[in-house]
């Protein structure tokens, strides 16, 4: 029988540390996109709560816990990320799609993480403007990205094929910031 070996998007590229900031990859077990049917947001939220214990997050927010979280990723679109795939019961009220392999999940952590990200991302990253659990779909170094503020920094999702460029751009900004002594 054929046994295919899995390879993560940033395999062999990370982690990278500079100026007290660390860029690393995390590989969740599952990512399922949940797109509620028309006018079915409340029903999806209820179904998500029943199946996974969390409501749908608001626009630009996350819900759930670290091991399994729902992340708003765009208009009418959420990702369930973590230890479980979206329960089949959700399919009655939402379109579900496997996104597990479509994305690279990077974590950027450290005191100067926001200063690093400010080099390549046009978001207002001030602590008061972009709080823990806030998430944004935006641009990182000219690539479409989902950026979420975590406890110690940021989680950055880029599409899988862009991983090498994303790592190069973020580590470049990290090196520059480290040289500027802001780390």
């Amino acid at each position: 029988m054929v046994d295919l070996i899995a390879k993560s998007p940033a395999a062999g590229l990370l982690p990278f540390v500079a100026g007290g900031v660390t860029l690393a990859e995390i590989v969740p077990d599952f990512i399922t996109s949940i797109m509620p049917h028309r006018d079915a947001r409340a029903a999806v939220s209820a179904a998500l709560k029943a199946a996974h214990g969390m409501a749908l997050p608001g626009d630009g927010r996350t819900s759930g816990r670290a091991a399994l979280r729902a992340v708003w990723t765009g208009r009418g679109q959420y990702f369930l990320i973590g230890e479980a795939a979206a329960d089949a019961s959700l399919a009655a009220v939402a379109s579900l799609s496997d996104q597990r392999d479509g994305w690279a999940l990077l974590t950027l952590e450290g005191d100067a993480a926001a200063d690093v990200l400010a080099r390549i991302c046009p978001l207002d990253l001030r602590a008061g403007s972009f709080r823990r659990g806030d998430t944004a779909r935006t641009e990182v170094a000219h690539m479409m990205a989902v950026v979420t503020r975590s406890t110690r920094g940021f989680e950055i999702m880029v599409m899988r094929s862009f991983t090498r460029t994303a790592v190069a751009q973020i580590t470049g900004a990290m090196r520059s910031l480290a040289a500027q002594g802001a780390g």
Binding site: D59, G60, R75, P122, L123, D124, R137, T138, E139
Partner: peptide
């Protein structure tokens, strides 16, 4: 209306 104030480059 969904994301708030954003830079032109995203649009």
């Amino acid at each position: 209306p969904i994301c708030g104030d954003r830079d032109l480059r995203e649009f």
